[in-house]
């Protein structure tokens, strides 16, 4: 009787979850920020991006909509008067476009270190300071140990941390509790595969309707089939998930 009771108590803890259910059901509402996409929220543990956890976003191409995916949460920081930090972004920021996405430019700082090593140092400092609302870090070359360090730095803080990595990292193990693989979803959508989450595996690809510069029309569909390009080939040759 005693053991059964304590097991029930343990299962009621917010940091304990059963593998067949999504974690975070018991998380308080303020520790989760809705992603702004209901299809994604339904599959994310806790119903949104959880504060204090590291989310890995695996994406190869620039321009798929990887930033538009995070714009709602960055815009949310304006309401909370929190700072956001971009570490080692891939290109120059275009101020007017970020402002047009409802981002508070007065609370958006950018760090562009000269060496990749410094980027990880900066990200770790920023996460352990606990002063940020959101951190976005781009890292092309980062190993499992460094991801683990970032995950430790963010744990316990209230920062939302996103780490952008190339898609080839999907075969590597990672300490990040949430891993997403982005791809072109067709019809102007963004395809999101949840490679890892605190909960049962998500086998289907989510299709998110992101705000695009233009209203989508069917005749926009690129004719991929007749012009084989380098990128889809590389994708098909990539090994499937390894465990």
């Amino acid at each position: 009787m005693n053991t059964a009771l304590s097991l029930a108590e343990i299962l009621a803890r917010p940091d304990v979850w059963r593998a067949d259910r999504l974690a975070g059901a018991a998380l308080p509402a303020f520790s989760v920020v809705p992603s702004g996409f209901s299809a994604l929220d339904a599959e994310l543990p806790g119903g949104g991006w959880a504060r204090g956890t590291l989310a890995e976003v695996l994406v190869d191409d620039v321009g798929l909509g990887e930033c538009a995916l995070l714009m709602p949460v960055l815009g949310k920081m304006r309401e909370e008067s929190k700072w956001s930090l971009l570490v080692a972004p891939p290109h120059l920021l275009n101020g007017p476009a970020w402002a047009a996405c409802n981002i508070d430019l007065a609370r958006l700082a950018v760090v562009s270190p000269r060496r990749p090593r410094d980027a990880l140092w900066a990200a770790e400092q920023a996460l352990s300071s606990g002063a940020l609302g959101t951190l976005l870090c781009w890292a092309t070359d980062i190993d499992a140990r460094q991801v683990r360090r970032l995950e430790v730095a963010v744990a316990g803080s209230r920062t939302l941390a996103f780490l952008f990595r190339p898609a080839r990292a999907r075969v590597e193990s990672s300490a990040a509790p949430l891993r997403l693989l982005l791809s072109a979803g067709g019809h102007g959508m963004l395809g999101v595969d949840l490679l890892k989450r605190r909960g049962p595996p998500c086998s289907r690809t989510l299709h998110l309707d992101l705000p695009r510069p233009l209203q989508w029309r069917e005749d926009y569909e690129p004719a991929v089939a007749c012009t084989p390009s380098a990128a889809p080939c590389a994708r098909s040759q990539r090994p499937l998930a390894c465990v």
Partner: peptide, 27 residues
């Protein structure tokens, strides 16, 4: 919190260089 942000950004720019830590504004 404002102080913590200030201290963080200062630390980053002291190590990485002042031009490496910035804010953007639309002009």
């Amino acid at each position: 919190e404002h102080d913590a942000i200030g201290a963080l950004l200062e630390r980053l720019s002291a190590r990485l260089g002042e031009r490496q830590v910035y804010r953007v504004s639309a002009h």
